[in-house]
Design a protein around this nucleic acid. Structure first.
Lengths: 248, 248
DNA sequence: TACACCGGAGAGGTCCGACCACTAGAATAC
DNA sequence: GTATTCTAGTGGTCGGACCTCTCCGGTGTA
């Protein structure tokens, strides 16, 4: 399968891929210094760096200036940083991202109801409590909101779906971190989260899915209202407002 | 806000991002030659290349040796090339990928039933016909199978979900392109595809979702059987695929 | 005229070797 | 004992030379 051995980039990628697949490289492990590694692979440091850069862009490697290069640790990320670029390029609409999120998260909630463990339920419960405690503080609230959804993703037992959700939500969050929510809405939001929690804890998958869907639909329409009041212009274009103009 | 201006890589990425968001760069467009572009941005060619490499790894740019560098054309890809690496790294299980696919595609089918257009229906119909015509030729059959699912994704009207599906299926396909299917199964498969087609054409979303789910569940168990019969006792090798562990 | 070949222009790919910038821990000063 | 400074090690940037690939137009032959 390796006709790709001509390109230095792919030689590096395949080499590291092999080290990972053979188990010789685990998440968090460090690879040799560039100069040394390049010598070992019989390629120039520049080419090695190209390959490492490729892997870093895919989220497989983690390069830290002055420290070293490591295999990515923590939860997997699938195209997390690329989605917003791709969105700008292909004109993704906000409603499409919401739709993707709604589908992923509602199924995730159903899976969590089926497979979640006591430890997950405890975390969920705690986050719900924190939400109620911070309805007056949107900033704080948001943190627990995000954590709640993240715990559900973990509880689903499917890291791929969890990673996809993370990708979507981070892009979505990126696009609207400026809209401040009102406390009145947060109370309702917390209520819905509690409903979701209860459905999951009682292992009622259908209910969990339904409530999650309702919650996200509500969040979307709230978001849309806010966007319309902020930007009286027609919604067809809907770029990400407020960015610096590009200096061509 | 933009402390990212220190890293040359990010300077390049942000510059190109700006050009894309301002509409100055469309899919298929070409960016200036490296030497010239580097001069214009007041950075070295090496740094420019690092940035371009980053964008290329994310699927935003398309670099062609001896020709030039272009903004990616065609359908968007989200982490398509990274998933298999990530899978090896985080130990993704085969059933998890199937599960992700089942969820995405069944919802995609439902959306296609709601929003599909005549042109999509026509394509689907054609692919189904081709499937029946090639039940004796697994290679050919597979092509139409893939196309069928791809058309559904397009018909869903949600390019994000379509891209996610493409990512999953290509990783899945990668991992089992070696398993040849039997013609007897293909006939059943074609029947199911026809059912899906009918459900979509009659705009019966629930039915489309259900049949798609059934189809993929069937495909998965067929794969599992094949995998087990191919490698009945794996002592040393430890193939990356795996069966569903009841634990977690 | 039609076709195959050749060669050059221009684009990306690789390499080298020097130097810059950052981080963490050791050495030093207080 | 604590705060500061120094330094070894590692990634980041540079520029400029040279290689390889693709494309296309010119040329020679049938």
């Amino acid at each position: 399968m390796a006709k790709t051995d001509t390109h230095m980039t792919m030689r590096v990628v395949n080499h590291i891929r092999g080290m990972i697949e053979s188990g010789g490289l685990q998440p968090g492990d460090r690879i040799p210094p560039e100069r040394e590694f390049a010598r070992k692979l019989r390629i120039s440091r520049a080419s090695l760096r190209t390959g490492i850069g490729y892997l870093a862009a895919m989220g497989v490697m983690d390069v830290r200036h002055g420290v070293g290069t490591f295999v990515a640790d923590g939860p997997p990320e699938i195209g997390k940083s690329s989605l917003s670029l791709l969105g700008a390029l292909h004109g993704f609409q906000s409603w499409q991202m919401f739709e993707a999120r709604r589908i992923l998260e509602s199924e995730l909630a159903a899976l969590a109801a089926e497979r979640g463990r006591e430890q997950h339920f405890a975390s969920l419960s705690e986050e719900v409590a924190e939400m109620y405690a911070t309805v007056a503080n949107p900033m704080e609230y948001l943190i627990h909101d995000i954590r709640f959804h993240r715990v559900i993703a973990q509880a689903s037992g499917n890291p791929i779906l969890a990673a996809l959700m993370e990708t979507i939500t981070s892009a979505l969050y990126d696009e609207r971190r400026k809209t401040a929510e009102r406390s009145r809405d947060l109370k309702e939001s917390a209520d819905l989260h509690r409903e979701i929690y209860r459905a999951i804890r009682t292992r009622n998958a259908a209910e969990a899915r339904a409530v999650m869907k309702r919650h996200l639909a509500m969040a979307q329409s709230a978001q849309d209202l806010e966007a319309n009041s902020t930007a009286p212009r027609s919604d067809g274009r809907a770029k990400k407002a407020g960015k610096r103009p590009a200096e061509a």
